[in-house]
Amino acid sequence: MGTDFILGAVATSVKWGDMLFYLVLFIVLIALLKHFAWGPVNEMMDKRANKIANDIDSAEDARQKAEDLAEKRQSALKESHVEASQIIERAKKNGEQQKNIIVENAHSEAQSFKETAKQDIARERQDALEGVKNDVAELSLEIASKVISKNLQLDDQKALIDSYIEGLGKQNEVK
C-alpha cells in the first residue's frame, strides 16, 4: 500500500475498484437498513410520539370534563336544597291554611248547631206555652163557668183571659 494512494501518484496501482465496491456496498446497506430496520422503527417512534401527544390532549380534555361535571353537580345540589326548602315551606303554608279552614268550618258548624238548637228550644217553648195557654184558657173557662154557673161565651171572654194569662206569664218571667 504505502504511497500508492497519495494523490494518485501511481495511478495504475490504485485499486479504484474498491471505490465502486464501497459505494455500491454502502448504498445497498442504506437501502436494506431503511427497508428492514430504520423504516419500521422510525414509523413506530413517530406513532408513539403522536400517541403520547394525543394522550396528553385527551387527558386534559377528560380533566376539563370532570371539572365541568363536578361544577354542574354542585350547582344541582344547591338548587335541590333550595327546592326542598321551598317545598317544605309550601307544605307548611298549606297545612296552616287547611288547619285554619277546618277550625273555621268546625266553628261555624258548631255555631249553626247551637243556633238551630236555640231556635228549636225557643220554638218548643213557644209551642208549650201556646198549648198551656189554650189549656189554661179552657180550664179557666170551665172553672169559671162552673163557679159562676153562668154560661159565658168563650169568644167574648177570650181577650180578657188572654190578658190575664199574659200577666201571669210576665209575672213568671220576672220571677
Partner: peptide
C-alpha cells in the same frame, strides 16, 4: 477494474 479483495 482492479479490485483489492483483501479490502473488499
Amino acid at each position: 477494474i482492479p479490485f483489492n479483495i483483501s479490502n473488499d
